[in-house]
């Protein structure tokens, strides 16, 4: 379990990469992020609230 601060998705991802360097290349390769239930990508500027729930996934692909 790690705790990071950030006001946007991008800030949170950067903070996670700084805290866990092993995750940095995986995050850099592209991930999908869910903020409060909405799965999104290319969303580094999306704001997150102090109580937002964030999940990080492998970047999704569809057919």
């Amino acid at each position: 379990m790690i705790e990071v601060d950030g006001a946007t998705v991008g800030e949170v991802l950067d903070a996670v990469a700084a805290e866990c360097p092993a995750l940095a290349p995986i995050l850099a390769a592209g991930v999908s992020v869910a903020v409060d239930g909405q799965v999104m990508t290319g969303a580094r500027r999306e704001p997150v609230k102090p109580d937002s729930e964030i999940f990080i996934f492998q970047k999704m692909k569809g057919g």
């Binding site: 869910a34 409060d36 239930g37 909405q38 799965v39 729930e53 999940f55 996934f57």
Partner: peptide, 11 residues
């Protein structure tokens, strides 16, 4: 509102 098996809650 259901928490999905993979984490996020469904809209």
């Amino acid at each position: 509102g259901t928490r999905s098996s993979f984490g996020p809650r469904f809209p």
